[in-house]
């Protein structure tokens, strides 16, 4: 493979990587605050993609104006799922597996609602209207939509980081992530922080879904991209939020280069294998501090 191709695949990969990163942040945030592997999270990507269909195709909004409403709507759904589906189990002190299965159930519920004919139906929907022609920079083809996805992903990730670092509420969310009981003793309303982190995860997942729809297509099978984003969260160190973004970009580039130059048929198997290898060798992520995931 020549350098030109490598750069080209890297550029394409970064766009997809920004999406993986946004989804991975949600996985990590939910894990940090609730200690939960959430199977409903990939379906927020699916929801965002179909909400994006409504916004871009039915309402004819631009990508930029659609981001906030689509994100907020998905965040609302995420909060409802958290409050109705998970909070009663948490309050009872239910087992981890009950919570995981509840997220599986809500994933089924969301997909099945969207699948209905009166909702969006079972087939893939196209969000693409007239895509602008690609521009050339030093012989590298840059597509506007890839750039837009990368830009919006970066802005959102930075926005989240600023929220978590700089605001009082953000600090409270991080405190819950460190230790729920201690945060409660400090007078933090833990349940409220959990709802906020669910909303943040939903928002980012929804926007990621909008971008997925914009780059590829929308519909009920979009959730599989969310499942692959789990790999990004693991690469960055599960629970590590800046790591999730880097993990997303690495996965996007890796995935694209593997697909283009190693084997398109084996790319998914290789990505899943990568999850296992990273978990075994560097459970704190490729860049994170060393943590113990061992028994």
């Amino acid at each position: 493979m020549n350098v030109h191709n490598l750069v080209q695949q890297t550029v394409f990969g970064l766009g997809l990587g920004a999406i993986y990163g946004l989804v991975a942040i949600g996985f990590s945030l939910v894990y940090r605050t609730m200690g939960l592997l959430s199977f409903v999270h990939p379906q927020y990507v699916m929801l965002g993609s179909v909400f994006g269909f409504t916004a871009l195709v039915k309402l004819d909004l631009s990508l930029w104006t659609a981001i906030v409403p689509v994100g907020l709507l998905t965040a609302l759904v995420a909060v409802v799922v958290d409050q109705v589906g998970l909070r009663p189990i948490r309050r009872r002190g239910g087992a981890e597996i009950s919570l995981i299965l509840a997220t599986v159930a809500w994933g089924i519920i969301l997909v099945e609602i969207v699948r209905q004919d009166w909702a969006y139906g079972p087939s893939a929907l196209s969000l693409r209207s007239a895509a602008r022609p690609p521009i050339n920079v030093l012989g590298i083809e840059l597509r506007w939509d890839t750039l837009g996805v990368l830009a919006s992903g970066t802005v959102l990730a930075l926005g989240l980081a600023a929220f978590l670092k700089l605001t009082r509420t953000g600090r409270a969310v991080r405190a819950v992530g460190e230790s729920g009981p201690t945060a409660a003793l400090m007078g933090i309303d833990v349940e409220r922080m959990l709802a906020i982190s669910a909303a943040l995860a939903g928002f980012l997942g929804g926007v990621a879904g909008l971008l997925v729809g914009y780059l590829f297509s929308a519909g009920i099978s979009t959730g599989t991209i969310g499942v692959k984003a789990l790999a990004a969260a693991v690469i960055g160190g599960f629970g590590n939020i800046p790591g999730a973004i880097i993990g997303g970009l690495v996965l996007g580039v890796f995935d694209n280069i593997v697909a283009a130059d190693v084997s398109a048929t084996w790319r998914d198997a290789i990505v899943y294998g990568l999850i296992i290898v990273v978990l075994l060798l560097r459970p704190g992520g490729l860049f994170g501090r060393r943590t113990s995931a061992r028994t």
Partner: peptide
């Protein structure tokens, strides 16, 4: 791996 790490 423990807990959720093994699950993943």
């Amino acid at each position: 791996l423990r807990g959720v790490y093994f699950a993943m």
